[in-house]
């Protein structure tokens, strides 16, 4: 399955979803002009991954890394849905390791991570970075 790579811009995050390399990372700022359009491509990739999981050489542990510097309120909603798609991988007996990075003083970004834990029930590990 082809990797999904999106280079970052000033207002969209970098996305690297690469099954062969075991890399699932999204990082940077998220306040796209058209949030739906931006996340739709990631959703489609995830849907394809879920559909074809049984036919692919897949790992038993999958690590997702979310490292946003900034996320606006409309992206917030789309990231929640993305996490629910990640959660769907649990049906294949996959162990998910999800990391939510935030700058240590950024308590607001930490709170967003906590909110996602509550809303998805996923074992998201909150990782603080020194600034």
């Amino acid at each position: 399955m082809d990797a999904l790579i999106k280079e970052p811009t000033e207002y969209t995050p970098k996305v690297v979803f690469d099954l062969a390399k075991g890399l699932f990372e999204i990082s940077g700022d998220s306040r796209p002009e058209n949030t739906r359009k931006f996340y739709r491509q990631i959703y489609e990739w995830m849907d394809k991954l879920i559909e074809s999981w049984g036919q692919l050489a897949t790992p038993s542990v999958v690590r997702f890394k979310f490292a946003f510097d900034y996320i606006n309120s409309s992206s917030n909603k789309f990231v929640l849905q993305l996490l629910l798609k990640v959660k769907a991988l649990e049906q294949f007996g996959v162990t998910l390791m999800i990391e939510w990075y935030y700058d240590e003083p950024d308590t607001d970004m930490r709170e967003i991570g906590e909110e996602y834990i509550e809303l998805t029930g996923l074992p998201i590990n909150l990782v603080s970075l020194e600034v």
Binding site: S73, S74, L80, Q81, E115, L119
Partner: peptide
């Protein structure tokens, strides 16, 4: 939180989330 998880009218319906976020921040 209600608006965050509400997908009843599609994800683009984020009515009011921006203003609520402003009040929270």
């Amino acid at each position: 939180r209600d608006r965050l998880s509400d997908t009843s009218e599609g994800l683009s319906n984020n009515a009011g989330m921006g203003l609520i976020d402003i009040a929270l921040k």
